[in-house]
Design a binder for these strands. Sequence first.
DNA 1: CTACAGCATTGGAGCGCTCCAACCAATAGA
DNA 2: TCTATTGGTTGGAGCGCTCCAATGCTGTAG
Lengths: 333, 333
Amino acid sequence: MVRPTMEDVAKRAGVSRALVSLVMRGSPKVSEQRRGAVLRAAEELGYSPHAMARSLASRTSTVLGVMVSDLHNAFFAEVVDGLDAVAREQGFELIINTGGRSPARERRALDSLLSFRPAGLALLSPVVPTAAISNAADHLPIVLVARSSRVSGVDTVNDDGEQGVGLAVDHLVSLGHRDVVHLDGGEGSQSGPRRRGFVNAMAKHGLEPRVVASEYTDAAGARAVQELHRGGRMPTAVISCNDFNAVGAISALEEAGYRVPEDVSVVGYDNTSLAALRHVSLTTVDQPRNEIGRLAAEALLQRVRGERTEPVRHLLHPSLVVRNTTAAPGGPS
Amino acid sequence: MVRPTMEDVAKRAGVSRALVSLVMRGSPKVSEQRRGAVLRAAEELGYSPHAMARSLASRTSTVLGVMVSDLHNAFFAEVVDGLDAVAREQGFELIINTGGRSPARERRALDSLLSFRPAGLALLSPVVPTAAISNAADHLPIVLVARSSRVSGVDTVNDDGEQGVGLAVDHLVSLGHRDVVHLDGGEGSQSGPRRRGFVNAMAKHGLEPRVVASEYTDAAGARAVQELHRGGRMPTAVISCNDFNAVGAISALEEAGYRVPEDVSVVGYDNTSLAALRHVSLTTVDQPRNEIGRLAAEALLQRVRGERTEPVRHLLHPSLVVRNTTAAPGGPS
DNA sequence: CTACAGCATTGGAGCGCTCCAACCAATAGA
DNA sequence: TCTATTGGTTGGAGCGCTCCAATGCTGTAG
C-alpha cells in the first residue's frame, strides 16, 4: 500500500532527489545518461508523482475545478467534454464536483473544490448566490457557464437564447404560421432570454406573441397543451422552452387528437440526444455545447496565465435543426 | 489572491499554529474560550483549510475518486448520487473524472485521480484493461461498478442482468407471448448476462429463444427490426438490450406499419428518464441505481477503515416497470 | 598555469498542514 | 505539603515535493 517517493527513486538511481525532480518535470538540463537512469529506477519502483505535494511545493496548480449543477443533464456532459479537451491540450486536469441543484450542496461542492486550490473554477449553471461566487473570484479565476451574471472579474459563456428562439420563430413564420405559442420555462435559468426572443421576433413579424407559463419538464409541457386544448385556442405552432417540454407537448397533442406536424408544429430547445431519436425527430435549437466548454476553458486559462484581467462575456450563436415536427400549417396530411 | 494560512490565524488569535489545527479538526480538548477566538480570527481572515496540505501531512485522505466512463449516460449520474450521499454522510468528498469510453483517456483519468492519492476509487463501467485495475488495487481500495471482473482484492457492484431479462420474459409469457426476440447488445458491458437471462428464461418456459445481433443505440434497434420485417418473421414481442435500442425498435415498427403494443410488445432495459417520458412510456427493467452507488461507497469505506479485506461481490435485484409498450399478443386494438 | 565561463548536479529551506512528545498550570490524592 | 494526574497548549519534525543558491566539473581563453 505504501508508494515510493522521489527519495526512493533517487537512491535507486544513485542521484539526488533534486535531479529526480528535474527529470520528472522534463527539464532539458539533465544529461541523457542520468535521465535514463532515473526513468529506469522510477519504472522499476512503480513510482508515480504526488500531485498534491507538487502543487504544495510549487504553489501552482494544474487542476481546473468544475462544478456541474446537475449531472443528470446531458447538456453539461458535452460542455465538460469541451472543457476537458482544451484543458488537456494545455497540460491541465479537470476535477468535477456536483451540486445537485441545491444551493446548500452546491456550496459544499464549491468549498470542496476550493480546498484543492485549483488554478481556476468553471461553474456550470450554478444556483449559489452571486455573493459566494464573487467571494471566490477574489482568490482565483472563475468562469460562469449558462448563467449570465454581472459579477465583476468573472467571465461568462452563454448561448444567445434570444437569438435561438428568434430562429425558431422565423422558421415557423416562413412556413406560414401566424398563431404561435411559447411555453415558458418559468424560473429556469435561461427562460428570460428565450421568452424575450419570442416576444421580440413575433413583434418583428407583426404577430401577437402568446406566452403560456410552463416548466422545463415533459409533464409541464403536456399540462400546458392540455390547458390550451381546453381553452379552445390551440395555435398552429408551439415553441417549447426545451426539448423535454416539447416532447411532453407532443404526446399531449397526439392524445388530444392533433397530428404533429400536420395540425400543430412543435419546436424544442437544446438539441439533446432525445431530440435526435428517430422516434422523436424534433425540430429544435442547437447550442454549440462543445464550443461553450472550449471557450470556458480558454477564458480560464488566459486568466491563469495572467494574459488578461478584463472580464469577457461570450454569447454564442445557436442554430436551428429542422427535423420532422414542423411543417406548413394545415400542410401535407 | 493570496490566502491566509493557519499561521496567520494563529497570530491573529494569539495562539499557536498547533492549537488552530486542533480547532479546525474539531478536537474536544480545546477550551471554549480559545476555540471562539480561533474561529473568530479564521472568519475575519476568510481562512479556509488547505485540503492538500492536510492530506500530505496526515498521510490520509478524505477523498474518494470516481471514474465515470461516460458522462453522457444519465445512468451514472444516479450512481454518483448514491456514492455522494454515503460519502458525505461519512465525511468524505468525491472527485470525479471521466474517460469518455476511450481506454487511453481513461488511463489518463485514472492516473490523474491516483495522483491525488484518494482514499479509494470507484470505477463506473471502466474500459481499461484488467491489469491496470489490479495494479492500482495494490495501492488503494477499488470498487468496480457495472463491470463484473474477478480481479482479486477488488469489490464489485452490479445489477443481475440475467434476472432482469428473466423478469421481462416472464412478464411477456404471462401476457401470452410465445414468440419473443432479444435484440442483443453485442460487445456492450452487460450484454452477456442479459442474453443469458433471455435464453435461460425462454428455455424455462419451453420456448425457442431467438436472439438478433444489435447494439446499445436507437439506430441499431431500428435496423434490427427492419431486418426482422424483411425476413418476414416478426415476433409478437421484442426485448431490447437497453432503452435506446427499444425506442429505435419502436419507431421502426411503427414505420413498418406495426402498432405497439397491439401488434408487437417492446421491453427496454435501464429505466432511463427516456422510458418514463409519456411520449415513450416504455415497459422496461429498472436497475436500483442509487442503491448501486450507495453499496459501492460503503464497500469502499469499509476497506478504507480497514474493516474488511475480503472482496464483496454485490449482485442487485432489478425490477420490472410496466408501462404502455407491452400487452397481450393481438390484444385490444 | 590560472581564470572563467558554462553546464550538470546537489543540499537545504520551505510550501501548509498534522502529529507527537514535552510542557505548564490547576486540581486531586496521600 | 508533596507528588500524581488531568486538561490544555506548544514547538519541532516531517509529509513529498519545488526552487534556489551553491558546488563541482569540464573545457576554453588569456
